[in-house]
């Protein structure tokens, strides 16, 4: 009896999870295989014929290879933002955790504010225009860094607390300058949390839609999320192409998920236990 109940629950869970979570993804993939007329029916049916390759070619070459440009833009945006985020957040996390001054409270307040306060969009555009960075990729990179810093700093600070101070002191006694203490002794030790930071922030920035929409208008420097949004109106009757695009831009997160599942979960659950 208990055997039946145990496996009954498992089977039920697997069935429900398949219906709720797998079918939407199966639907995306099947739509990407269909031709235009069949895709227009919007139904959950097996593709008649193999049209994936023609769909990919069409979606990539449309509007002057806009999707390719977008993939390049998104890659530059993600790599540059995450690199700056990791270095700057680790520096802050290190000094914030090690040195107690009366400014610590203020800095912690700013970190919490950064996590909670919605960014003031139009004033930011006004400011970016003022310094000539509006609609430029490097402007958006700096914005992503600014918005991502609070979370990254929290991750680093918590991890640095577990690294004994004796290591810093030993390095100092050996004559290392502060710069070397951090970049040659501490930063290498932070590798596990650095991986977590890289993975979590890359996924967030690659998937970001709102900030490119506001700060990076125009087709020339669209990111992949914006192409999806632009194609949504253009491909209103070509659902096969729209879903091919969705499938293509889901590949990078899927790869990250397959290789770094543990780090992502670690990063996103940080703070759950201690509250």
């Amino acid at each position: 009896m208990s055997l039946v109940r145990k496996y009954g629950l498992s089977v039920l869970a697997i069935l429900v999870s398949a219906v709720v979570f797998l079918i939407p993804f199966a639907f995306i993939i099947m739509m990407a295989f269909k031709d235009r007329t069949q895709a227009q029916l919007l139904d959950f049916s097996w593709p008649q014929g193999f049209h994936l390759w023609t769909n990919i070619v069409e979606v990539v070459t449309t509007r002057n290879w806009m999707l390719l440009t977008a993939f390049i833009n998104s890659s530059i945006l993600t790599v540059a933002s995450v690199t700056l985020l990791v270095i700057f957040a680790a520096m802050v996390g290190f000094v914030l955790q090690r040195r107690k001054t009366r400014f610590n409270g203020l800095i912690e307040f700013f970190i919490l504010a950064g996590l909670m306060i919605p960014p003031a969009v139009v004033p930011t555009i006004w400011l970016l225009q003022g310094i000539g960075l509006f609609g430029k990729l490097h402007g958006l990179i700096l914005v992503e860094v600014a918005y991502g810093l609070p979370f990254s700093i929290l991750l680093y600070r918590a991890f640095i607390a577990t690294i004994p101070r004796e290591l810093d002191e030993a390095a100092i006694i050996d004559g290392a300058r502060p710069f070397d203490v951090f970049f040659r002794v501490i930063l290498p030790l932070l590798w596990p949390v650095t991986v977590t930071n890289i993975v979590v922030q890359s996924v967030a920035i690659f998937n970001d839609f709102t900030n490119p929409l506001y700060y990076l208008p125009g087709n020339a420097n669209a990111t992949v999320q914006l192409t999806l949004y632009n194609f949504q109106s253009q491909f209103n009757t070509s659902y096969n192409l729209l879903f091919t695009n969705i499938a293509l831009i889901t590949i990078p997160p899927l790869v990250v998920f397959l290789f770094f599942n543990r780090q992502i979960v670690a990063g996103m659950t940080a703070g759950a236990v201690k509250g």
Binding site: L84, F88, M91, V92, F94, V95, T124, P178, F179
Partner: peptide, 18 residues
Amino acid sequence: PYPGWFFLPAAIIYGLLF
């Protein structure tokens, strides 16, 4: 060994853009 200027790059970007 914990220099204050380590805050600077983050503080400038965060202060200016947020």
